[in-house]
Every structure is written in structure tokens, then in C-alpha cells.
Nucleic acid binder design. Structure first.
Length: 994
DNA sequence: AGGTCCACCGTTTTT
DNA sequence: CGGTGGACCT
């Protein structure tokens, strides 16, 4: 049999869809339109799937029908001539946003299954990857290739069809974030892609020009967001009614089974031509070329349409027709024809009335438009309608093309036609003047030359760079730091100034130019991660792997020394064992284990022994208690032959003190000692460094005292400031160029941080970036509102156009940038703040990951790696490449950078944090924390705060952070929640294209 | 031993 | 508000 199918629709659970988009109305609309097989849409949505299970029953293999009792009820409201069978096919659309080959990709794919069980399994798998509840068309950070793999894995009979493959924002071939070829997207699985959806803005002849699509069957569907749009595009089948037969028809492309498509004129689609909706500029691709892709009105890049993109990928000329091509027919939806005839909107009562009348007297819409004889149409008595259908079938329609989200406009009758037809003249049928004509743009405007070319602004300052490949280039200060020799060196490296690069370059320089043996270089760090990264970068830079430079944490270095020089092999007790010892040691004492732990560590860090006078550290009240606990703790450790971490450093220092020979040996061995993050050094580590480096010129320390945020665990930045005193004759180099943040962010953070001691005369860091952005300050009602606002901003920015350019105040003075979820970080002072955000983001379907969240169980938040796999639940980990928004504490964010940074809770009590009620413990460290937070941003920094917040069970009024008062007003853009709402209202098009 | 009630407290975190 | 832990009870 021959039938029409509409294989891409949505339900009421998708964004921006009609509330009445339920199975009953899909059924009814299918009958009115003449569609036999209709997609269910949205089967991933739990509520919608429940409706599917409840209301549908299998009719033919893999196809479903409404339960008879429901059909019966509905039959009464359908014209007699439209009473035909309707079958549902299980269908959903998945929106994938992910990075591939370093580029953000966004595409939509249709997934079909022949049975409910498969859908259940499929949904269960997606549920672990992202939030499928929040929208009928879920947004997942899932690679399309992976999605295809999951589909086939769930049921090899299932099919995945890339949706509206040409739309700029979300599609396989989209100009904004798509691919050039099918195999770039689907890799080895490309063979399983045997069909693709043309979308409203392209039709088969456009697709025929692209060689990559030769083996692919084109389908056309409505992507209906309301029942009335159903069937505006459709696919024709000459097959049996079953899932298998439909699949086979598409897979083989056999003209005996697959009958091609019915398409609206692509010019009617929203993205056919190029242009700017706001500027009223609509251009054919050739014209766009002549303007260099720049809008002649506003000077920004034009939104390129589908035709443009097709031409870019097309190997064949316009009008190329392959052999054995499937047939296709162009239509104008009946409501549009009637709207044109009566010169009223397509949704008006008048159009509706005539529409109903036509269906009642002739039959379903597709039959009227495509098959019914003209005389029969005339009999229905709708004036001019038969003529309109005839012209449409002959292609005699004029359409102003759609562009940049604006639908194209259909014109069938000119003013003169209208007059003539009203006058009853029949001449028009032969009028050769009315041929198919395409406008080159209804509102095309003349270019304004001075505006037309606004390329990127000149960089703020010309970089003095040394020669060599880009990654090796250093600015003059960095170069000086690399080449400097002859005295201890301190490099002060503010945020984004290329600290690690300078240090690795210097090490590479010593090895390459100065003949220093790699194994004679010691690089000390505070974390294993930092040590690993350092090692890796040296390997990359020197091209030698493995690298023999001793890049190690303080603790692992000490362990090495104790083994190699001290002749003993300490065993460090694990966390569990240590906790056990502490528990025992604290039994019957007034100090709790975790407090005692901190105290003992503190004493060891200060190189106190258990016999020393502890009063200077803990006061007269607690000194003796601590001593008792400490003694017991040491005994317990010794009994099992354990050490704790601090012991490693203490013993190493002691070893060197007591054995000058060993010390000389160690000094001889390491001709160079590098210390990274020197501002985080504590007393015992400082003594160790000084012991090893004393008397030589071999020491290089690097760090930034403004980023010292670990005072609570012993770090003491005064060692950094004392360096010149400790190592007389040393050289100090300050790096002053930031490669990370825009100037306003640097200035704002500078103004804030220099207030710590009312500093004056310090030089600010200069940005090397060619754009700038003001800081957005967002005031929200409460913690939920704060999370919602941030979520909405992220949605808008991921959606395509930055919401930033919408606001007249303009936050970001930068070229349009594409953001993906991994580009965002939300930073918090406390982990407690995660809660509201997790809840809101889960509901909104925005993927996120929390860094360093411990002792929290969130089985509903699956931990997912970059491949969309579930990698395990035991250890909570944060994957930088995962396509997710990062939630982290400011502490955890140190050393990282993100295109867009939100700092949540910029209010008194959180930033600065008040441990008690009224006063912060260490205002300066809180200030430095905020400094670290602010300077993570590469493009945009948004500081949010809540006007009220629940604190210890009571809702409190909150004031914005005092730190914000230290920033000049002109760098800031203050907004409240309303702003987010407004911005959202103005940009519905990106996330909901159709 | 296991359960219930009430008082209390509430940051940041590496080795 | 919400989790923990000590005190006290069954």
C-alpha cells in the first residue's frame, strides 16, 4: 500500500509545544492531514511514555494504534471522508551537545524502536547519562556516535535518523556546530545511518547536490510542535504497514518501497537564506559572499542559512538530479493557501472555517493538495482555492525566503491576479508572466561601507614575543625568567600569566641549552596532580619520555630521601588507620579526634616535638591535653610501624640536620630546585627547602601570594614575601601579562585584592586578550532563584546566541562565541551551596558534575565520563572533558580556568565566610579566595548573591559581599533576576528552533 | 544490644 | 533545617 508517514513529532512534554499535543490529538490531526503512520514523539519522557503504554496497543508488528475505545470516541469528531487508520511508530528526538575533535557539536537525532521493551531499556540507559525527565526532547552531553551505539545495542532493529540535518544550530551538517561529512559524526557506525531528515529549510533537490548523501534515503517530517502543523512535510511509502517494512524501505531506498517525500518549499523555512532578523537583512548566499559574511547593517557575522551551507558542502551544481532519485512533491500547507486567499492569518477563524469545509467535502489535506482532481476541488466552493492548488502543484508560487529564524512568506496571487479572479476572468491560467520566481530578499538593504567591516579589534598591546613556534613563544619577562642564572630566583606569577609554561620552559632550557642533566633537577609541588602535570609538560616540551626530572610532591620527595639516604622505608598509614589511632588516642579526652588531628599536624608542621613546650601553639589550657593525645597517637603509630604524612617531612629535616654528609650528598645531586606554588609552603617545608638550597644559586620558586588560600592547613604566605630576606641577592621577576582573562576582570580583581592592606603603587596585570567583558552582578531573591538564574543564563549561552549581546548594556565585547556545558563553572564557598543548584539543574536537564564531593550520595546523579559512559560510584571524580557544567568550591577551582565563571553566594557570611555569626576568621584569606574565584574566568564572570538565605534553619536577610564595594562601578553591570527573565523571553529561537 | 530523644553545631582539604 | 552523638531507656 501507499501511505504518508510523519516520523518526527513532539508531545506536550517538549519545550514550546502546544498543551493539547497528546496522543488523541495526534491521532485526530493525522486523520485530518491524511497521515497513516505518525511518530509518537518524545518516548524518552517518563510521563509521556506512561501515556503511550496506557493508550496504545500493537496493531501491526512494530506499529501501534490507539485503543479501540479511545478511537471510537474520537471518530465522532472527524469528518467522514477522513476516517482512515492511523498507526503510531515509537519515536523520540535526542539533543546532543558535546565536544568532538575539540569543537562543540550540537545535533538532534531521531530514534525509533519497534517495541515498548526496547524503549524502556533505552530510556533506562539515557536516564543514567542525563536528565530525561525535564523535557520531551532531552538534552544530553552524549556523542551522537555513542547515541547510535546505544540505540543499536538496545535493539539492532532500532533506527537512528539524523534530524533536520541542515539547520545551523543543531544538526549533523549545521554551519554552527555540525560536521562536513556523515562519517565525521558517526565514525565506524556510519553504515547504520541510512536515512536523514531534510528539515523544513531544505528539500531533496538541495540534498541531491551533496555526494555524501547519495546512499541515504531522505525523509521529510513536520517536527510538529502543535497538532495543526502535523504532516506539513511527510514521507511516502509503498510498503506494508510494519516497522520492519518501513525500516527496509528506508534502508534499501528501493523505489518500489520508499516513495520519496512531500516537502514545503524550503524557502518557507526559517533558515533558508542568510541574514540578520534584527537588522532586517536577508541575503542569498552569493550576496553574503560579496559582503564577506558580515552584516551590512550591524557589522557582525551574518547568520548563515541552509542554502549557504548546502552550497559549501555541495559537489554538484544547482539543479543536479541524480539517477534513480526518489520522487518528491512541493506543497504549501492548506492553511497557508487559505490565508493567502483571504488575506488573513493562517490561524484565524475564517481560514479554519474553510479548512473544515474542504475536509468535509473532499477528504484529508494531503489528498486535497496532491491528488484530488481540480474539478472536485472547485465543487467545494471555496473561492480561488482550486486555482491556488493548481498553481501550487505547478510550482507557480512566489516566496520571500526565510532567514535567521524568520519564516518565509508565500505569495500565490498578485494584486492584479486577485482583481482578475474576482472579476471572473479566466485568462490568468495561461498568463506566462506569472512564473515561479524567487525573490532575492524582500528587505535587502544597501550596505553601509563603514559599518560593513568591523573586524576584531587590535590587541590592546603589541606582544613582544621571541621567535619560534607559537607554543614556545615567551614574553620578555617570561624569557628573562627562563634565561636568568646566577642567584636564587623568585617568579611572582599572577593568575593566567603563564606560570607553568615559564617553569617548564626554564627546565627545558636548562636541559637543552645548559647541559643540565634532567635527573639533577628537582621540582617540588603540593599535589600529585601538579607533579604529574609538570612531568608531562616537560616531556612534551623536551620530547623525551619518560623524563628524568624529579617532579614530586614534598611528601613523595621526602619518602624518596628517607629510602635512598636514610636507609629506612616508612609506611604511611592510610586515612582509615590514622582515624582509628586518633580515636583511640582521644578516648576520655576533651579534644575530639579531628580537632586533635589538626593540632598534631600543626605542631609537626612547625617542627615541634612532643616533648617541646606546646603552650605557644595551643595555649596553657590545651597544651598538656594535646601532649597526652599526641604521645598516645605516636605510640599507636610506632606499634604498627606506621608514620603519618607530616612525619615524612619532619624526619627528612631531622635526617639532614643530623647527618651533614647526607645533606651534602643530596645538595650535590640536585643542582636545581624548583618549588611550585611557593605561597602555599608551610614551616617544615620551608625549612627543608632552605636546608637543601642554602648557599647556592640553584633555587627557583614560583607562585602568587594573592592566591594563598590554604592558611587553615598550615600554608604561610609570609615565606613568599620573605624570600628576598631569606636569600639575599636573589632575583625577583614579576609576570604581568595575563593570557587568560579580559582586562576588566583583571582590574576588578586587582582593585579588590589590593584593598587587603590598602596597598598602593602596585602594578596591575595587563590582559593580552583582544576583547573585554564587564562583570555581571546578579541579585536574586533566594538560593533557588540564584540557581535558576544561573541555569537560565547557561541555557541561553549554550543555545547559540549569547544572551550577552541581547542586553543593550552589553556585557561581553567579544566576537560571538559558542559555549558548551563544559565551558561553565559555578564556584561556591561551601559545598552546602551545591544542593540548590543540583536540584534546579537536574530539573532543568542541564548536565553538571561536582568536584570533590565526598560523603554525599546522589544515586540519581550519574557520574559520567567524556564518552558518556558510567567510568564508577565509589569515587567521586570530576572529569574536565565531560560535557557538563562544573560545580566546585573555590579551593578546588584553584589552578583551573573556565570560559564562563559564576561565583555563587557573593554575600556577607559566605564570601567572606563567617564561621560564627558576625565576623570572618581571616578576612584577608577570604579576600584571596575571592580573588582566586574571580580570576578563573576567561570570557565572562558573573557574581551572584541572594537577598535572603536560610542560615541554620532561619531565613536571613543578606547583604552583598563587601568585596564588591572595592570594585569600581564602571566595571560592573548590576542586574536582578528580572534581567534573566527578559533575556530569556527575547531569545526563544535557539533552544527551540521550530 | 538496640532504639529514641534531645542538644548541639554548622568552612575550605592535600599528602 | 538536618545530621551527629551522647544520654538514657527498654
Amino acid at each position: 500500500m501507499t501511505f504518508f508517514a510523519d516520523l518526527h513529532v513532539h508531545s506536550k512534554y517538549s519545550r514550546a509545544t502546544a498543551k493539547n499535543l497528546d496522543l488523541e490529538n495526534l491521532y485526530r490531526a493525522s486523520r485530518l492531514k491524511g497521515i497513516t503512520v505518525v511518530g509518537t514523539g518524545d518516548f524518552t519522557h517518563p510521563a509521556w511514555f506512561a501515556e503511550i503504554e496506557e493508550k496504545l496497543v500493537e496493531a501491526e508488528p512494530g506499529l501501534f494504534r490507539l485503543k479501540p475505545e479511545l478511537e471510537k470516541e474520537l471518530d465522532r469528531h472527524v469528518p467522514a471522508l477522513c476516517l482512515a487508520d492511523v498507526r503510531f511508530i515509537l519515536q523520540a528526538e535526542i539533543s546532543s551537545i558535546y565536544k568532538k575533535d575539540g569543537v562543540v557539536r550540537k545535533n538532534h537525532n531521531l530514534v525509533f524502536f519497534p517495541d515498548l521493551q526496547s524503549v524502556k531499556r533505552f530510556n533506562a540507559r539515557l536516564d543514567r547519562i542525563g536528565n530525561i525527565e525535564s523535557d520531551g526532547r532531552p538534552i544530553l552531553g552524549l556523542d551522537a556516535e555513542k547515541l547510535l551505539e546505544i540505540t543499536l545495542d538496545t535493539n539492532p532493529e532500532g533506527m537512528l535518523i539524523p534530524a533536520h540535518i541542515w539547520t545551523p544550530w543543531f544538526s549533523l551538517f549545521g554551519s554552527k556546530s555540525g560536521f562536513d561529512r556523515v562519517d565525521q559524526c558517526f565514525g565506524d557506525l556510519s553504515g547504520h545511518i541510512f536515512a536523514a531528515e531534510t528539515g523544513l529549510s531544505s528539500d531533496p533537490p538541495m540534498n541531491w547536490r551533496v555526494k555524501d548523501l547519495d546512499r541515504i534515503s531522505l525523509i521529510s517530517s513536520s517536527d510538529a510542535h502543535s497538532p495543526m502543523y502535523l504532516g506539513r512535510n511527510a514521507t511516502v511509502f509503498h510498503s506494508n504497514l510494519s516497522f520492519k517494512d518501513i525500516r527496509k524501505a528506508l534502508e534499501t531506498g528501493d523505489p518500489a518501497q520508499y516513495g520519496g517525500t512531500v516537502d514545503m518549499y524550503p524557502h518557507q523555512g526559517k533558515y533558508h537564506f542568510d541574514g540578520h532578523r534584527k537588522c532586517g537583512v536577508c541575503l542569498a548566499p552569493e550576496k553574503t559572499e560579496s559582503f564577506g559574511g558580515i552584516c551590512p547593517e550591524c557589522g557582525k557575522p551574518l547568520t548563515l542559512g541552509v542554502l549557504n551551507r548546502v552550497q559549501k558542502l555541495a559537489a554538484r551544481p544547482r539543479g543536479y538530479t541524480p539517477e534513480n532519485r526518489a520522487s518528491f512533491q512541493s506543497i504549501v500547507p492548506m492553511a497557508d493557501l487559505l490565508s493567502e486567499i483571504f488575506q488573513v492569518g493562517p490561524k484565524t477563524k475564517k481560514v479554519g472555517g474553510h479548512y473544515d469545509k474542504l475536509l468535509e467535502s473532499i477528504g484529508p489535506e494531503l489528498y486535497i493538495l496532491l491528488e484530488c482532481g481540480i474539478p472536485d476541488i472547485e465543487k467545494a466552493g471555496v473561492p480561488m482555492f482550486a486555482e491556488a492548488v493548481q498553481r501550487m502543484r505547478a510550482g507557480r508560487v512566489k516566496i520571500s525566503p526565510g532567514y535567521d529564524g524568520e519564516y518565509g512568506k508565500v505569495e500565490i496571487f498578485s494584486k492584479e491576479d486577485r482583481e482578475a479572479l474576482k472579476g471572473g476572468g479566466g485568462k490568468l491560467f495561461e498568463d506566462p508572466a506569472v512564473r515561479k520566481k524567487k525573490s532575492t530578499g524582500a528587505k535587502e538593504k544597501k550596505p553601509q561601507e563603514n559599518k560593513a567591516c568591523v573586524p576584531g579589534k587590535e590587541p590592546r598591546e603589541k606582544e613582544e614575543l621571541s621567535a619560534g613556534p607559537a607554543e614556545e613563544r615567551l614574553n620578555s619577562r617570561q624569557e628573562k625568567a627562563v634565561a636568568f642564572q646566577g642567584a636564587p630566583l623568585m617568579i611572582q606569577a599572577g593568575p593566567g600569566t603563564g606560570k607553568t609554561r615559564t617553569i617548564t620552559e626554564k627546565i627545558a632550557f636548562l636541559i637543552r641549552e645548559k647541559g643540565v642533566r634532567p635527573e639533577d633537577i628537582l621540582a617540588l609541588t603540593f599535589t600529585t596532580k601538579a607533579a604529574g602535570e609538570m612531568k608531562q609538560r616537560i616531556e612534551t616540551r623536551t620530547g623525551k619520555k619518560p623524563c628524568d626530572v624529579v617532579a614530586a610532591t614534598f611528601h613523595s620527595f621526602c619518602l624518596m630521601v628517607l629510602r635512598e639516604y636514610g636507609g629506612f622505608d616508612p609506611m604511611v598509614a592510610n586515612e582509615e588507620a590514622l582515624a582509628g589511632f586518633l580515636d583511640k588516642a582521644c578516648a576520655e579526652e576533651s579534644i575530639k579526634p579531628d580537632k586533635a588531628d589538626l593540632m598534631i599536624q600543626k605542631a609537626k608542621q612547625r617542627l615541634f616535638s612532643v616533648e617541646d613546650d606546646l603552650e605557644p601553639l595551643f595555649g596553657p589550657d590545651q597544651a598538656e591535653t594535646v601532649r597526652r593525645i599526641w604521645k598516645r597517637y605516636e605510640a599507636l603509630l610506632a606499634a604498627d610501624g606506621f608514620s603519618d604524612y607530616e612525619d615524612l617531612i619532619v624526619r627528612t629535616v631531622t635526617l639532614f640536620n643530623q647527618n651533614p654528609d647526607l645533606l651534602s650528598k643530596a645538595k650535590e645531586r640536585f643542582t636545581y630546585i624548583f618549588v611550585d606554588e611557593y605561597q602555599d609552603i608551610n614551616h617544615s617545608q620551608y625549612v627543608l627547602v632552605k636546608t637543601l638550597a642554602c648557599g647556592g644559586e640553584r633555587l627557583v620558586v614560583i607562585g602568587d601570594p594573592d592566591q594563598s588560600i590554604y592558611g587553615f592547613r598550615g600554608s604561610d604566605r609570609t615565606f613568599f614575601n620573605r624570600f628576598e630576606h631569606d636569600f639575599p641577592g636573589c632575583e625577583k621577576i614579576v609576570l604581568k601579562k595575563s593570557y587568560r582573562s579580559p582586562q576588566s576582570i583583571l582590574d576588578a580583581s586587582f582593585q579588590m585584592i589590593t584593598r587587603q592592606n590598602n596597598e598602593t603603587g602596585r602594578e596591575r596585570i595587563l590582559s593580552t586578550l583582544s576583547f573585554d567583558s564587564r562583570l555581571l552582578i546578579l541579585e536574586t531573591a533566594g538560593r533557588k532563584a540564584e540557581a535558576v538564574s544561573v541555569g537560565k543564563m547557561i541555557e541561553q549561552m549554550v543555545g547559540g546566541t549569547s544572551f550577552l549581546s541581547i542586553d543593550a548594556g552589553k556585557v561581553l565585547d567579544a566576537p560571538e562565541k559558542e559555549f558548551s556545558f563544559s565551558d561553565f563553572a559555578v564556584l561556591f564557598r561551601t559545598k552546602r551551596q551545591y544542593d540548590a543548584f543540583e536540584e534546579v539543574f537536574s530539573t532543568a536537564g542541564i548536565p553538571f558534575q561536582c568536584a570533590g564531593r565526598e560523603k554525599r550520595e546522589h544515586p540519581d546523579v550519574a557520574v559520567q565520563g567524556p564518552e558518556g559512559e558510567i567510568l564508577n560510584h565509589d569515587q567521586d571524580f570530576w572529569v574536565p572533558e565531560a560535557e557538563k557544567v562544573s560545580f566546585m568550591t573555590i579551593h578546588a577551582a584553584k589552578g583551573l580556568e573556565f570560559p564562563v565563571v559564576f561565583v555563587a553566594g557573593c554575600e556577607q557570611g559566605l564570601i567572606p565566610f563567617f564561621p560564627k555569626r558576625d565576623e570572618p576568621a581571616d578576612l584577608d584569606e577570604e579576600r584571596r579566595l575571592f580573588y582566586v574565584a574571580m580570576t578563573r574566568a576567561e570570557h565572562l564572570l558573573c557574581l551572584t548573591y541572594a537577598k535572603k538565605r536560610m542560615v541554620f534553619g532561619k531565613t536571613e536577610k543578606r547583604e552583598k559581599s563587601v568585596f564588591l564595594q572595592d570594585i569600581e562601578k564602571n566595571l560592573l553591570l548590576h542586574r536582578n533576576t528580572e534581567f534573566v527573565r527578559e533575556a530569556k523571553k527575547n531569545t526563544p529561537k535557539q533552544m527551540e528552533l521550530f
